[in-house]
């Protein structure tokens, strides 16, 4: 188990180097930070002076190594636009994004697992068809459109929920639904497929032959086995959601790091963009690792390999 964890951590480290290296070089190729800092009215001399002052005139790999070395100590530099420390800016906003991500994935699981189980118990029944309908809608509707529709109906017409900002729990309701619904179809379909397969297995017949109650057969013997791939997928989706929160946070004006990255991209605020990409990538890697560990706990056969 320890060897497995060490191996995985090393792989994770390599992934982070590649991701940060790519982001760093691509963003420096696509935008000239000196121009951003100097502003539109700056003269060529000013721009050149800034270039030298910040070290933008040096080869890009030197700049990257310097940035990476500081990033490892948690120092991501200062925002070009706000002049604030990037680490402070992120620390102040990451809570919002994490809350949204956790709420959204919980929402998705709470909807999709029961729906998938019920659909699997009676394939092709009315309930199954309804679940399919929910899934098709979730897959087909673009998140931003769905979010805008909710704003119009729940926020503007009926005035049930606030449409912008992150001052109270009520501000999180619509973003959670919009983001969570997006993940529901995949998780629901996987739960349904897994349950149908498991319910037809020999050990479920054994469980029934033991005279166990339908509840025990369904939840203890079937769901535990059917849920294994769902856990892995949920972790991946949680990663997507943190990334996908860029759109949702922008629409609902939730000031998390999704919103921050959108803002930073518009302003070519490179230190902020790089830091956020690195953080998203790290979260993603950690989540995948966590999913593997949860799976090893759910399925005793995995940890042996």
């Amino acid at each position: 188990m320890l060897a497995y964890a060490i191996k995985r951590s090393f792989a994770a480290f390599l992934i982070l180097i590649v991701v940060s290296g790519l982001t760093f070089s691509l963003s420096h190729l696509s935008a000239d930070p000196a121009l951003t800092i100097a502003g539109e009215q700056a003269s060529d001399e000013d721009i050149q002076a800034i270039r030298e002052l910040y070290g933008f005139d040096r080869p890009i790999y030197i700049q990257y190594l310097e940035w990476a070395g500081r990033a490892m100590t948690g120092d991501f530099g200062e925002s070009y636009h706000y002049g604030e420390r990037v680490s402070t800016m992120i620390a102040g906003r990451i809570g919002t994004t994490m809350s949204l991500g956790v709420l959204a994935i919980l929402f998705a699981l709470i909807i999709s697992i029961p729906l998938g189980v019920v659909a699997a118990m009676r394939p092709n029944s009315l309930v199954d068809r309804f679940a399919l309908l929910v899934a098709v809608f979730g897959q087909a509707l673009p998140t931003f459109w769905f979010a805008l529709m909710m704003i119009i109906v729940l926020g503007v017409w009926w005035r049930w929920l606030p449409i912008s900002g992150n001052d109270s729990w009520a501000h999180f309701v619509m973003p959670t639904i919009a983001l969570g619904y997006y993940a529901t179809p995949a998780l629901m379909r996987l739960t349904r497929a897994g349950m149908i397969e498991v319910l037809g297995s020999d050990y479920i017949r054994t469980a029934r032959a033991k005279g166990l109650s339908p509840t025990v057969v369904l939840f203890k013997h079937a769901l535990r086995n059917a849920i294994i791939p769902v856990v892995a997928l949920a972790a991946v989706w949680f990663g997507f959601m943190l990334g996908g929160s860029i759109v949702i946070e922008t629409i609902f004006n939730l000031k998390g790091i999704g919103w921050l990255s959108y803002d930073a991209l518009l302003r070519s605020d490179l230190p902020v963009v790089q830091a956020i990409v690195l953080i998203f990538a790290s979260l993603y890697v950690v989540l995948t690792l966590a999913a593997d560990l949860v799976n090893a706990w759910l399925d005793p056969r995995i940890s042996v390999r």
């Binding site: 017949r205 029934r208 086995n225 005793p300």
Partner: peptide, 23 residues
Amino acid sequence: AHLRGGAMSMIFQEPMTSLNPAY
């Protein structure tokens, strides 16, 4: 269900797959 596994029980053909792998 109260009889099954209690007063009457069954042994199946496929021992490899008849036990739940998760428990």
